[in-house]
């Protein structure tokens, strides 16, 4: 079951990546990133099953960071939406100098 769970985590990660790449809606891209995080968490939990509790502690921290990230990320999206009236990432390409 452990190996299968790892393969599941790999597939979830790949789906998350695909979502980030293929969608243009910033919020859904964000969701897909959460999906990737979950895939990683799953792998960590599997490892912690045989390698000790530290993996679970790490998952705990990842969740905390994910929460913080969600708060700030969503705030940014709100801010951007105020400015552009859209959350389509094609509409803003300011991420360069």
């Amino acid at each position: 079951m452990l190996t299968q769970a790892l393969v599941l985590s790999a597939l979830l990660f790949a789906l998350g990546t695909f979502g980030v790449l293929v969608r243009r809606n910033a919020i859904i891209m964000f969701l897909c990133i959460e999906l990737q995080l979950n895939a990683v968490n799953l792998a960590l939990v599997v490892f912690s099953r045989v390698a000790g509790i530290d993996g679970q502690v790490f998952v705990f921290f990842v969740m905390t960071v994910a929460a913080a990230e969600a708060a700030v990320g969503l705030a940014i999206i709100i801010s951007i939406f105020r400015h552009y009236e859209t959350v389509n990432v094609n509409s803003f390409n300011l991420l360069k100098w």
């Binding site: 790449l21 243009r24 910033a26 990432v89 094609n90 390409n93 991420l95 360069k96």
Partner: peptide
């Protein structure tokens, strides 16, 4: 460096 998040990702 297109400035687009998609490219970077």
């Amino acid at each position: 460096q297109t400035g687009s998040v998609n490219t970077y990702a």
